Amino acid sequence: MKAQVKWLGEELFLGTSESGHTLVLDANGGTLAPSPMESVLISLGGCSSVDVVSILHKAKQNIQGCTVELNGNRVDSTPKLFDTIHLHFVIRGTDVNPKHVERAVNLSADKYCSVALMLNAKVSITHDFEIIAC
């Protein structure tokens, strides 16, 4: 897998993936686009959500929505790494079994989410979920 990041000027950068997709990053605290650290949170949420939705579909759970809210805490010293990240999954569906959701979230965190597994060495990652019947 390859990517390129090009400086656009000021504190803006354009990332281009090997597949040709682009993402603007703003090192100025995310004023005009996500900051690189915000994009790490988004990537973690995306990776985990893909797993959770896939696992729940395979378990034949009738889900209509999956949102994950992420809260990352960064240390005060430089480099300002994340020390904790919490993921809160909100699953919407009909007759969704909490045991299946718990299993899906745990499998993502412990086995499948590449982003979480990379971050685990330095970051304490926790998660929980709620189910909203619709």
Rank of each mutant, 00 (worst) to 15 (best):
D83I: 00
T67W: 09
L14P: 05
N73P: 03
I85Q: 07
P98A: 01
V90Y: 07
I63W: 11
T67L: 11
W7R: 01
D110M: 02
L107N: 04
A116G: 12
S19M: 08
N97C: 12
M1D: 08
N28Y: 11
H100Q: 14
F13M: 13
D83L: 01
Y112R: 00
N71T: 14
K80W: 03
Q4C: 03
V105D: 01
V24S: 07
K60P: 07
Y112A: 03
L70A: 00
V24F: 13
K111Y: 08
T22G: 08
A109I: 14
I55E: 08
H57L: 07
S49Q: 06
Q4H: 11
I132M: 03
S77H: 13
P36I: 06
H21E: 08
G72S: 02
R92C: 10
N62F: 02
G93Q: 03
T67I: 10
V115P: 01
K111P: 04
S108V: 06
L23N: 11
A116F: 04
H127W: 10
L56N: 01
T94A: 09
I63D: 07
A121C: 12
H100W: 11
A116N: 11
Y112C: 00
V115L: 02
M37Y: 04
D128W: 13
S54W: 15
V115I: 10
P98E: 02
L8K: 11
E10K: 15
H127C: 07
G72D: 07
A3K: 08
I85M: 10
K99T: 15
L14T: 06
S48Q: 13
L70W: 06
D76T: 12
E11F: 11
